[in-house]
């Protein structure tokens, strides 16, 4: 059977200007396969401008790729229509970063949950709709009686974010794209939301793509990770391997910069060699080369992915002796 969602050599370029056309590659040549047979949690990590949100938008079908194709169950999503399109919309759901902005302050939270039920005709009677809402809220660890009938401003950020997850859950999705779901939530509530996401994957068989710049939570929640930098895959693989022994200089920089809540692990033990770039320099070779402390002559040409071990790959000439990995085969390496 065709996989749930498949990206084939997808590139997204944003252009602006009419005469002096300038274009900006947000994502270049990404291939990814998401299978529904084995639900997993996959992290897409990177700093701002790495293309992680563009990837989320592409997966959700909000924007179309400049090059390449996205397939949903074997069909190009740009050609989907009618019933098939509805089923794509229902099965691929999203949770966004800001739990404050997605609510309409004039409606009670019931509205957010009842609209999808209505639109997708999931319930025949009001009582049935209410049951579905109750079920979804309970699944994310909220008490329906506390929540239904309340206005968004009466709820905390953590509660709101869990309602967003519940909204997605009402539709029984196969894939949930969570774009920075915890970055605006207090540290003490983060744990609850992450736990909710994990139970969705475990108990409801939902595959989750967790998009974040926070590698600590990524490490705790996901099985595999893809590290993006300026639209390209820098390193990918099993999350334990990548976080505990990062190979690509960029991943190393990211992991060295995490402020660990651990006094024995001081920040700045490794000097910050690669600072943030000043101005938008253009390179034809490796995207990270201008910041890379190990930059070599070879780096003028774009490095392919080299397979370092069974579950880890990096796009860096430091590993030039390892076998090359075709970008299309990236997903085969990611554990589920």
């Amino acid at each position: 059977m065709a996989p749930l969602l498949e990206l084939k050599n997808v590139t997204k370029t944003y252009s602006r200007g009419l005469i002096n056309r300038t274009s900006n590659t947000a994502l270049s040549n990404i291939s990814l396969t998401i299978d529904e047979a084995e639900p997993t949690i996959m992290t897409v990590a990177g700093e701002s401008g790495s293309g992680k949100t563009t990837l989320a938008m592409l997966l959700l079908g909000f924007i179309t790729p400049t090059e390449g194709t996205i397939f949903y169950k074997g069909k190009d999503i740009s050609t989907l229509h009618g019933e098939k399109r509805m089923s794509f919309r229902r099965e691929v759901q999203a949770v966004f970063q800001d739990p404050f902005a997605v609510f309409n302050p004039f409606y009670t939270v019931d509205h957010l949950l009842s609209v999808p039920i209505e639109k997708f005709k999931l319930a025949k009677t009001k009582a049935q709709a209410r049951d579905k809402m109750d079920e979804a809220l309970t699944a994310v660890g909220l008490r329906p009686d506390d929540i239904l009938g309340r206005f968004p401003h009466q709820l905390s950020g953590g509660q709101r974010q869990r309602i967003n997850v519940a909204r997605a859950l009402v539709l029984k999705p196969r894939l949930l794209i969570a774009d920075e779901p915890v970055s605006m939530v207090d540290a003490s509530l983060r744990a609850n939301i992450l736990e909710t996401l994990r139970s969705l994957q475990r108990d409801h068989g939902v595959t989750i793509i967790y998009i974040t710049h926070d590698l600590t939570t990524a490490y705790h929640i996901s099985k595999s990770i893809i590290v993006l930098y300026r639209g390209g895959v820098m390193e990918a693989g099993d999350v334990d391997t990548v976080i505990k022994s990062p190979q690509h200089p960029y991943t190393r920089l990211l992991i060295d910069s995490i402020p660990w809540p651990d006094l024995s692990r001081r920040w700045g033990e490794t000097e910050l060699k690669a600072k943030e770039p000043e101005g938008g320099e253009k390179t034809t070779g490796c995207r990270f080369a201008p910041r890379c402390p190990y930059v070599m002559e070879q780096c003028q040409t774009p490095p392919p992915l080299f397979q370092i071990n069974r579950t880890q790959t990096a796009s860096c000439f430091l590993y030039g002796s390892k076998p090359e990995l075709e970008p299309e085969r990236l997903s085969e390496l990611l554990p589920v």
Partner: peptide, 20 residues
């Protein structure tokens, strides 16, 4: 608060603070 912090040792253990 200190307990709820993630570290590399206790993978997959989330300890939130119960209540609001």
């Amino acid at each position: 608060l200190i307990r709820s912090l993630p570290s590399l040792e206790n993978k997959g253990v989330f300890q939130g603070i119960p209540g609001l």
